[in-house]
Simulated assay, not measured.
Amino acid sequence: MKALELFAGAGGLALGTEKAGFKHVAVAEWDADACSTLRLNRPNWNIIEGDVRHLTYSDFGTDLDLVAGGPPCQPFSLGGRHKAWNDERDMFPEAIRAVRETRPKAFLFENVRGLTRQSFSTYIEYIVLQLTYPSLNRKKRESWQEHLSRLEQHHTGTGGNRPEYKIIPPRILNAADYGIPQKRERIFFVGFRADVNAQWSFPEATHSQLALQVAKWVTGEYWSSRNIVPTQATPSDKKVATLSQASFESILSPWTTLRDAINDLPDPVLKTDIANHIYQPGAKPYPGHTGSVLDEPSKTLKAGAHGVPGGENMIAFPDGTYRYLTVRESARVQTFPDDYLFTGPWSEAMRQIGNAVPMELATQVAKQIYDVLNRTEFEKRLVKRCV
């Protein structure tokens, strides 16, 4: 199945869709360093470096199965300037144009949780309506509010009976709930062309915080299986009793911790021949940035848009010391394969990783899409043979 990938960054989402079964007709990204990383790791991909606003998407075909991407999130990020639709970096209009020009069977877009803030709620509705009726394009000199009004009137009129795309209500997924060793929440937009009998749903969570707490404080299995003493304070008897009762209801796996992700890597203070695993000095906590404890999933990795990646890109060790995550450790947290290499200095590589979608989370969502499209295609072929 053919996919077009936009705003690829270092490739987290693109690797996920590839692992799910899609073949990329093109992978577009404007950042030169990210493109260097993509070319190094996937020399056979058709990587297009440059501003997607200059592309004619239909050049990549009008028979695509999937258009995917993470439109730049700075306009909506909690760590950004929050300019949203007034920010020239808002690339959702380009994501929608790609759907309009290629008419794929499905699309998959993701963004930061900040997009779900109340102040942006109207804009989220605007995005969803545009993706539902991509051919109802914004006119010249028409404000986005005027365009929204026109879309709403179309949707509540006869157009509502003929949606161009059927869109699942956008969903926030926490990567930790899907086995990724990081508490990272992203919002996903998934839709299918109206003629596709998708019957799709988001993948169900496989892991939980409750199961991790039970493994630590009820069964003790978390500590015993790793042959370590508890590194965190034991909860109160009342809390333990509550967890013990809840353990009978928990059928999910425990959250994967930072220790689980990086424990087999040697101390980077010692020189190793492991690629991208180099010690970076200078880590220290400061208010609001206290690092990630070993025996919990990592906090959300930051891109470090203002220089050195945020103080959350540290390990807070049980003995009270701190160390920056290496590039390789950060890649583990984002579930990139160990043979995937990042170009540029530490700060640049960390920026690429901090901006990425966890590859395995992308895989799970994209695999659900791939399986549905594969099933519908099989059903079509079956009907043709029976006629």
Rank of each mutant, 00 (worst) to 15 (best):
A3C: 09
E5C: 03
E5V: 00
L6G: 09
A8Y: 01
G9D: 14
L13A: 07
A14G: 06
A14H: 06
G16W: 02
T17P: 08
T17D: 05
T17Y: 10
K19I: 00
A28H: 15
E29A: 11
T37L: 03
N41K: 06
N41R: 02
P43S: 07
R53E: 13
L55C: 15
S58P: 06
L64P: 07
G70A: 07
G79W: 01
H82M: 13
A84S: 08
W85R: 14
W85S: 13
D87W: 11
E88R: 12
E88M: 09
R89V: 11
R89M: 14
D90E: 11
F92K: 13
A106G: 14
F109T: 14
R117S: 08
T122K: 05
T132M: 09
L136F: 15
N137P: 12
K139F: 14
W144G: 14
E152K: 12
R162S: 14
E164A: 12
L173N: 11
N174I: 03
Q182S: 09
Q182A: 05
K183N: 04
K183W: 00
F189A: 05
F192N: 08
R193V: 06
R193I: 10
V196T: 13
N197D: 13
W200H: 14
H207W: 02
H207A: 02
A211G: 01
A215Q: 00
K216T: 04
W217N: 01
T219K: 00
S225G: 01
V229L: 10
V229K: 06
T234Y: 01
A241M: 01
A241D: 04
T242K: 05
Q245M: 00
Q245C: 00
S250T: 00
L258C: 03
I262Q: 00
N263I: 10
P268H: 11
H277Q: 04
Y279Q: 07
P281R: 14
A283Y: 09
A283C: 07
T290D: 03
V293Y: 04
L294R: 04
V308I: 06
G311C: 05
E312N: 00
T321I: 10
Y322M: 10
Y322P: 13
L325R: 02
T326H: 10
S330R: 03
R332E: 02
L341R: 11
G344I: 04
A349W: 09
P358R: 03
L361D: 04
A366L: 03
Y370R: 02
N374I: 08
K384N: 14
